[in-house]
Design a protein around this nucleic acid. Structure first.
Lengths: 224, 224
DNA sequence: GGGTGTAAGTGATAATAATCACACGGCTAA
DNA sequence: TTAGCCGTGTGATTATTATCACTTACACCC
């Protein structure tokens, strides 16, 4: 993946630094820049009029952001991007990226690969949600966080990102209370455990089994 | 869109003819070819172990198929492709497409545009389902079919593809009975009407309102 | 014209998930 | 020290959706 990033650095652009909680862009904003993340973590979310929030990704070093409007006639961001921790992104103007993509086929192919991967992620998330309901959405979210931000420790995989129940619920399009009950149930079954505010997954295979995981690999089954 | 297709024709490949009901490929098959549709309609579906079927697209002239495994190390189709009517597709071997993409940046960029559009479609479908439940899924499916296969007639928009309740249910990840009841309700509200086996949408704005349609345009809000 | 098969329609019930209401604990700022 | 805030946990209730078990409608075939 790092080789893909290096290519983007050869394109003129600027570094943008974000404080925790700061917005990189809002949905509806005019889209001028394509970004990729140098450091930190960035929430990608979408608002519903009802006040609900839908969380889609937690981008990290190497993730691309704001690529969807790249070839729109009237480009607008359709999601929000908010720094979860202090972050740095590299910003490339669309027209500049366009001209580099026209000149360097290998860059276009790399972008094709990356976007193809995003497509696969999106499809597998859709599958989990649609076929296994909220349980599918929640278990799938836990597995994806484990794959992206999990750290092997004694007793299981520790998700190193602090997440409130509400945030987790946003990722699984679930009511907080429902999520809370499901986590409680998993705790009682010794599938997960809380370790000073973080989630420790003790039995990831249980989660995978329950949603008939197709073992699509960490490249796809993640939250980045 | 047609200009994009023309470019693919310059790449050596073969024409494959399919009878109605015939499979172009099954999920799990080794993926060797990238396809685009010359004529006819092709269902893109996915099976769940439980026996349920999830329908994702109904591809038509100009649609690309089987693009997802293009850059996988061990390429496999993840969906089924089944001809809904007699169809012809143009098949290009992955390695050949790879070499053309490397040589012709404009081809790679066109593919980027197409896949980017697919991504947008997928996201908007996800949104509809997740934020508005089954109603969202069903209304969204109807709107998408209207955008792809609708024909303006007196009294509304006629969806020119014959679809059983079961097939419609598969597109919205709903039980047939639930779908049936919802269609009945829409009929009672004069939002839709059956016209010799086809669905006539009399009030598409009602459907759009109910799911807080963001008017993303026919390029995105379709089922192709 | 009766038999068969497939799809549509519908009632009853069960399962799933959201909503409302509130208790509790921990942290922080006055 | 205490009031306020935020996040968690939970019971009770309602809303949504699936499932089961049928009936009805219609086309097709012999």
């Amino acid at each position: 993946m790092d080789s893909m990033i290096r290519q983007f650095y050869e394109i003129p652009g600027k570094v943008v630094a974000l404080k925790a909680g700061e917005y990189l862009f809002h949905e509806g904003d005019n889209a001028k820049y394509f970004y990729f993340v140098r450091s930190g973590q960035i929430f990608i979310t979408k608002f519903a009029e009802s006040g609900r929030v839908l969380s889609l990704r937690l981008a990290t070093r190497g993730s691309i952001i704001g690529e969807l409007p790249l070839y729109e006639e009237n480009p607008m961001y359709i999601f929000n991007a908010i720094a979860q921790s202090p972050s740095e992104v590299y910003a490339i103007e669309f027209p500049i990226l366009h001209s580099y993509l026209e000149k360097k086929p290998s860059l276009a192919i790399n972008l094709l690969k990356i976007i193809g991967m995003h497509m696969r992620k999106q499809h597998s998330k859709f599958r989990d949600l649609v076929l296994y309901g909220k349980k599918g959405a929640i278990y799938s979210t836990l597995i994806r966080f484990a794959n992206s931000y999990g750290q092997e420790v004694d007793g299981g995989i520790l998700i190193t990102v602090p997440l409130t129940n509400q945030e987790l619920a946003n990722y699984s399009a679930t009511a907080r209370e429902s999520l809370n009950r499901m986590l409680g149930e998993l705790r009682r079954q010794n599938v997960i455990e809380m370790r000073d505010g973080l989630i420790l997954i003790r039995d990831i295979n249980f989660l995978k089994q329950e949603i008939q995981c197709e073992n699509c690999g960490r490249e796809i089954c993640n939250i980045e």
